[in-house]
Design a protein around this nucleic acid. Structure first.
Ligand SMILES: [Mn+2]
Ligand SMILES: [Mn+2]
Ligand SMILES: [Mn+2]
Ligand SMILES: [Mn+2]
Lengths: 142, 142
DNA sequence: AATGCTCTATAGCCAAGGCTTCATTTTGAG
DNA sequence: CTCAAAATGAAGCCTTGGCTATAGAGCATT
């Protein structure tokens, strides 16, 4: 019955962390998608980015502005979006993590379509420690 | 090399879903916490709620206003916050899902502290289908 | 019963991330 | 070349979810 009540600050850390993750989740998805578009089509146009992200074009433009502000991307007006070195590195990490999360879900018996949907949100909250555990688990069962 | 490019709308669904989940994540954490406080202390005061969520008191007040608007909670000024039936039901579901996610992470070899941190964000993106798969996996390995 | 302390509400600010509408630049068809 | 269509940028609106500062209500201790 009478558990020791948790120290409020400790509990708050969990939510603070989740909020911080949330703040970068959008950037992560955008750099990954910009990388995809460049790989698939040779360039990342604002319109394509917006279509793939499921937002209106000005929303994508605003996101790109934030990517530029954070040093993750550059853009030449009417020409397309490009990743900086930092952006490309982030994209690579994000893509790898995304893949691992999808594979883990599938390995746990989640239907592929559902795995793809859930992973898009889950991935951002997966710490390096958890990611390592996921990879070890996947390796251990070939 | 030349994969068939994904249909943009299909890909967009993933992000749309993640955005929808995000919109309710905060409500889920609040109702769960309100339930915790009532269970532990007999009542949920705004100040305690704010401390546990790691936000300033007016931020908690504003969140409570949204809970009321959505029919999940009621509040008597200067008296505390209460869950409606819908709120209590949501809290119960959220609590159960939270527990399963933490247990899964631990079962996969994630350190307990890390599991608690990561789960707080991951849980909201875990669909019913994934949750069922997680439970099956946990059951299968006792 | 008074009064001070604690808790809560209110007001007002900011940034992020959606949106629509409209102006401007590029592009490409004829 | 021209000029209309398409793409992009710019402006301005909304909601959410943070914050600080301050006013007011409730409570407890004398
Ligand atoms: Mn994602
Ligand atoms: Mn992703
Ligand atoms: Mn949570
Ligand atoms: Mn939770």
């Amino acid at each position: 019955m009478t558990d020791t009540p948790p120290r409020p600050e400790d509990q708050a850390d969990r939510f603070t962390r989740a909020r911080e993750v949330q703040a970068v989740a959008l950037l992560e998805d955008y750099v990954e998608m910009i990388g995809d578009l460049i790989a698939e089509m040779g360039e990342a146009r604002v319109a394509d980015l917006a279509a793939r992200m499921g937002v209106a074009q000005p929303t994508a433009t605003k996101a790109i502005a934030r990517l530029k502000r954070e040093g993750l991307a550059t853009a030449r007006p009417y020409r397309g979006v490009f990743l900086t070195e930092a952006g490309a590195a982030l994209a690579e990490r994000v893509r790898a993590r995304h893949r691992v999360v999808v594979e883990l879900l599938i390995a746990l018996g989640v239907p592929e379509k559902v795995a793809e949907l859930d992973a898009e949100g889950i991935e951002h909250h997966v710490s390096d420690a958890s990611l390592a555990a996921f990879e070890a688990f996947l390796r251990a069962r070939g």
